[in-house]
């Protein structure tokens, strides 16, 4: 059974149909890529899944539970994490604090215990220490030691993207949505990220849904690719099949060039 099932999802903004009857199911432990030209509705799809938008029609089912219409924080609590295209980090906090915020769901300190701890053994302090250890594992996994105590606002763009990935991992998601994870990264950083993504899939068993423009990465890591154009799914299937699909070539290169190639 699919872990995340999107069925006939549509999103209409006024007169603009941003998503038109999109259906997609993610098998547990797979990597699915969503590609398409700018403005195709890819990020809108993510926003509908994570609850930032309320879809106009259709349904999103996560682990057998219908989640569209639920608040984003509740969807996150079910085990759905995401990153953002334009990096949404907590800029004035350190990397450590950003990742600790990823642990928010797994921590329990409230307002009273959090404000009155006074020694190592206090509940709030013990919890802080335990979760710092957990975050340290993620810092090791993503090689973020150099950034550990620095303000994320001052980190290089590529590193910020990795911190954001780390924060999403800290929530221990079962499904992780990545919005252009390698955009703005250099070759070396892209290479590292590809390795991490396959580790995330193989070792952590996390199901991935990735929006990406970098075709080399898409072809290399994904099990399944969906192509969106003007909110409509125009092709879906194995990466190699999608690559040569006539509709896809048309969307990316224009009508004439397909005719010319044929």
């Amino acid at each position: 059974m699919a872990i995340l099932d999107i069925d006939n999802l549509s999103m209409v903004f006024g007169g603009l149909t941003a998503l038109d009857k999109v259906s997609l199911s993610l098998e547990k432990g797979s990597i699915t890529a969503v590609i398409g030209p700018n403005g195709a509705g890819k990020t809108t799809l993510f926003n509908c899944i994570t609850g930032l938008y309320k879809p106009s029609s259709g349904s999103v089912t996560f682990k057998g539970k219908r989640i569209n219409g639920m608040k984003p924080y509740k969807i996150a609590a079910l085990g759905l994490g995401r990153t953002f295209q334009n990096i949404e980090l907590f800029n004035k906090m350190s990397t450590m604090d950003n990742l600790l915020l990823g642990r928010h769901l797994h921590m329990h300190t409230g307002i009273f215990s959090g404000s009155t701890f006074f020694r190592r053994g206090s509940r709030a302090a013990a919890e802080e220490i335990a979760h710092r250890q957990k975050v340290e594992e993620i810092i090791d996994f993503l090689d973020l030691q150099h950034a550990r105590d620095r303000f994320v606002g001052g980190l290089p763009y590529g590193t910020q993207k990795v911190v954001e990935l780390g924060r999403a991992l800290a929530t221990e998601p079962e499904v992780l949505l990545l919005d252009e994870p390698v955009a703005g990264m250099n070759m070396e950083e892209k290479q590292d990220l590809m390795i991490w993504l396959s580790d995330i899939k193989e070792e952590l068993g996390i199901t991935l849904l990735v929006i990406e423009h970098d075709m080399r990465l898409v072809m290399e890591i994904s099990d399944e690719v969906m192509v969106l154009n003007y909110g409509e799914p125009i092709a879906q299937g194995k990466p190699e099949d999608v690559q040569n699909h006539p509709e896809v070539l048309k969307a990316y290169l224009g009508e004439d060039s397909v005719a010319g190639a044929a």
Binding site: L52, A76, E88, K92, L105
Partner: peptide, 24 residues
């Protein structure tokens, strides 16, 4: 320095991201 205070700062720096990691 603890969980609740961090959630406050998260709301200040990016409320969208805060929601998506589970801050109510």
């Amino acid at each position: 320095k603890t969980r609740v205070g961090r959630a406050f700062v998260a709301i200040r720096d990016s409320d969208i991201a805060a929601e998506c990691i589970g801050v109510n």
